[in-house]
Design a protein around this nucleic acid. Sequence first.
DNA 1: GAATCGTGGCC
DNA 2: TGGCCAAGATT
Length: 347
Amino acid sequence: MSPPDSDRLAAIRSALMDWYGVHARDLPWRMAPGSAERADPYRVWLSEVMLQQTTVPHATPYFQAFVTRWPTVGALAAAPDEAVMGAWAGLGYYARARNLLACAQAVARDHGGVFPDTEDGLRALPGLGAYTAAAVAAIAFGRRAVVVDGNVERVMARLFTVDTPLPKGRPELRALADALTPEPETFDPGDWAQALMDLGSRICRPRSPLCGQCPLAGDCQARASGPPEAWPKKLAKVPKPRREGLVWVLVDKAGRVGLVKRPDKGLLGGMLGLPTSGWDAGEASGPPVVADWVEAGTVRHVFTHFELELEVMRAEGQADLIWREVAEAEATLPTVFRKVLVRALAA
DNA sequence: GAATCGTGGCC
DNA sequence: TGGCCAAGATT
């Protein structure tokens, strides 16, 4: 990697911001490029947390539902735990929802209902790591911050042909992003961050990048040495183990289904779920009640680091469980259990 | 530093 | 179909 000189950096900045002025995406949490008005910190923060490891199309309806139901951070802070977790169901990475509520409560309790307006202040809140703190500081408060997500890493790796594989190459990519980040007097920090991410998302895509439409193609070392999709380099991934278990769908005479609240930590933590045998080694709980259990098929589900095969058992009866209408359960359970419920009631 | 933690879309 | 990927944080 050759250290970029200042003239080249300035040319890249101008080219990107010119492109963004024309091609910026219209998103419900975003101000138009060049707008004098700053975006609402609550909406910026909420969108950034939802977008962690999540696509814009998947997160968008959840964002709309949340801001409709809880228009301010104070309203969210006052919401019951189960309402927030249920509204998050299907979005995944449920620690985000627990931290979301904890963060809203911290802002309400410790900051008078107003988000801290510095990167360090934001970084201290639950669920805000390096990326999200920088993004909110830049977008909501106009602070210069080095905003580095997967998009930015990919753009940096290609612009400057960084050959160190991820995740080891992260510090190097961040240093390049820092060098490229403009001063607030030159370009708006929020526009800058979103321009870089839009470029990564729409043009400098992981597969089949659209170099013909890229405003930085003439500055891109990967474009010159090609093919650009060879960057960023990545370490080989470990194969996913396969795990198995039983899941019990108990229905009462009123047509409700029996649920359990999962422990706050660990997989699907804090969410409602169906009773299961467990699926980790040495884990083997029995059914919630002795009943006439019948097999109702199999559900396969792929988590981040393992594949799960659940044998579905169904019965009618009573037990000491949390009872919910089937429609509500289907709307507020994690996807793996929603799939089980659909299978059990179809069989 | 490595493991853990969801889900849906795409090719 | 199966692997890859997405605006990462936490422990």
